[in-house]
Design a protein around this nucleic acid. Structure first.
Lengths: 199, 199, 199, 199
DNA sequence: GATGAATGAGCTTTCATTCAT
DNA sequence: CATGAATGAAAGCTCATTCAT
């Protein structure tokens, strides 16, 4: 029962190939990447895509889910780190490092959001709120920023760096540093607009 | 011949209607807005769109060009303002206020970039470098940020705010303030990556 | 204003070609006839089909509508004929003659039924009830059959004949005669089931 | 070799499950019912369907064959009944009662007709001719109808009744009665078209 | 100069059929 | 033998683009 059936070996491999190929293809072509191209890139038939993901949307959701869950795992660990400020910065660094920013926009623009993704997002919301609360209490971030702010700002460094045509793949680090400096208490000016509600 | 022919009057009017309708439609539907819908919104035939803009891409480029040129005009004025720091902030505020960020991403994602847009971008680059240089000399921004950084960061506030589903239309002001705080000399930490080259 | 604009001349021609080609194709291949084949048969591009009929279903509905309306016109004339029994038989003969039976099944099996078709069907229902009432009063048909019965039986002769592979195109006349004999008062046996309600 | 191997037991069971599931599925969804759904309904894998029936068409043919053979068995018994007229009516009643009409149309519309079905059809043709001959000699049916006519008319009552959306499941009895009255000698009018040849 | 009908490549999705497990 | 994963040929439909009117 618990043994991994040999039957599924190929299927599991294909699922991975498909997710990887789709992530690459979406990254290059945007949300309009065609399922046919994804299938070709994964080296499988078009029909195989739909065996694994009933809908193009489901495929997108699966990618997003993977990414969010991976981040959540990192966040959970960092909640126990000794230096709360460094932990928050590390979280944002890891987040940017997986180039999550683009993928998150997929779901945002894509039609429906399956419940699993919503669940994962709420989990991330919890985690980030925890990281921010600890950092704030420690004096590592200014008093007027919230977890919701951080989640929103999380994707900004990659987005900003993506505008440079042949940029160094680490350019986002520069903008993460600048934005993180804006989150510090030193030299903080009052914010002109209240924080958005926690989703 | 060189006089404005009466025929031209209609054409000019149609061009404006088309640009406005296209901007609205793109804002609502994203880059996938159909030419047919744009034509309908402008109250003209589909063929008229292609008389004015040989390609959907050209239409996008024209919108982007308009936006950049409008910003350039504002920037030119602000280069003569008395308070360089306030001038830079005002420029970023105006830029965000026209919700330019979305439209710029059109060109970025869209295939070709016509020479005129390149020209306008270079002009903006010059302007922003001037604004940043003055602000830096005045001690209003940290020493290690460049005009290229500002151009890249310019779209970030709207992008960040766009992730909130039913956000207040002014939410971007919050994130512009945070990012701008990150640009100030107070509490600036060394940046881990060099600035990108000026385009 | 009321003049027929030259612009639409081609469109009208294409619409007719399309309806004819679709009717032929459906008659040969059944409801599963592909839109591509219909377009090819009509000598137009695939997209043209969808310009004229937004949906395959709409195309089917248009064909059905044409057929029903043509029948209604005939029925309206026959309501004024001198011999009510002959009028009813003539109506059924005309109905079978256009091989309407198959096309009616299209709508029946096809998903949605647009309001116009419903309207035409109700009109036909009225007409047939009138024809039957007159024939009954005249003693040409048995007392226990209704208009609803006739509408249902209308398609039967063609259906029956369609089972013969290479039948004479007039074979349906034989079965219409048999069925009509079953509608006569002479030798009628009591019916074991009440008539269905008028739609 | 000739002994029934234990392996065969499962196969036979599956074949029956498959035929039943397919009949149900076709009845509900029409000829377009998918092989996957049939397999699921039968509780077997999709591959098993193709082990038993090389083609979807073969599966359809097998169902049709079963139905025809069942009818043939009934017909053979009725050939020995005392009242030839009642026997023919009973045969038609039984035929309609198994709702054979729909299934026969499957084969008619479906591409190829395997030899076995042809054989069963010929057998039925013989049987029906026998029933009709006896009824004719007995004066129960008019002189000008043949066995071929009866075979063709056999499906008509169900077909006619199927047009009523939420009809009573016995509505076909009404139309069988009307059609049978048309087959009686009383009040028969000459037929305008010769009978089709016996297949 | 403006129109919108025509076009056909391309999209997502379904499904009968094959074949490795 | 049974399974269901893989396949690829359609299917219905959309849309940027062309061109007769």
């Amino acid at each position: 029962m618990t043994s991994t059936r040999p039957l599924r070996a190929d299927a599991v491999r294909n699922r991975r190939l498909l997710l990887a190929a789709a992530a690459d293809e979406f990254a290059e072509r945007g949300l309009d990447a065609s399922v046919a191209d994804i299938a070709r890139r994964a080296g499988v038939g078009k029909g195989t895509v739909f065996r694994h993901f009933a809908t193009k949307n489901d495929l997108i959701a699966a990618i997003v889910l993977d990414r969010i869950d991976a981040l959540n795992a990192v966040g959970a660990e960092l909640l126990e780190a000794t230096d709360p400020g460094a932990a928050l910065l590390e979280f944002l660094t890891v987040a940017a490092h997986q180039r999550q920013q683009r993928d998150l926009s997929f779901l945002h623009e894509s039609g429906e959001l399956p419940t699993e993704v919503t669940r994962a997002r709420e989990e991330m919301s919890q985690t980030v709120h925890g990281l921010v609360d600890r950092a704030r209490k420690h004096g590592a971030v200014r008093a007027d920023v919230t977890g919701a702010d951080i989640i929103l700002l999380m994707c900004a460094p990659n987005y900003v760096a993506s505008y440079v045509p042949d940029a160094s793949p680490d350019l986002w680090r520069r903008y993460l540093a600048i934005i993180f400096d804006g989150l510090r208490p030193e030299g903080a000016h009052p914010l002109p607009h209240p924080a958005p509600p926690t989703p």
